[in-house]
Amino acid sequence: MPKKYILLVEDNPDDEALTLRAFKKHSICNEVQVVRDGQEALDYLFREAAHAGRDSSEMPTVVLLDLNLPKLDGLEVLKRLRADARTKLLPVIILTSSKEEQDVLRGYGLGANSYIRKPVDFQQFLDAVGQLGLYWLLLNESPPRA
């Protein structure tokens, strides 16, 4: 059985640290893989460039995707993931500061599984991250591997 882990696409180191802390707080001990921009996310998932040698059996259970990313923004990443047979069904959760109607609409339109706005209040953020970890790693049944 392949191990369950989370891919966190996040360019802000503060947010990264706080998100990791939140996982830890909720005893989500699964590994969290972090990539820091859109291009790296694609490289990681498609095993290209720096991630070319990665073990092909390992795929994250869920991707936490920020929208505002350097190089390639989150929506573009999502579009490419959905266009590729290997990642078409991969659960992707948009985790972002924006709650602009058009971002939400486009996110879902491109096939996001969930859309969560990062609350400023860290307590709320903790709760949100805890719940989504619990849900996606434990409750949710992942799609079978392609």
Partner: peptide, 16 residues
Amino acid sequence: AHDLRAPLRSIDGFSM
């Protein structure tokens, strides 16, 4: 909406 909130989250988060 986006960029100004990020530092706030850091301030709040690390204060906590």
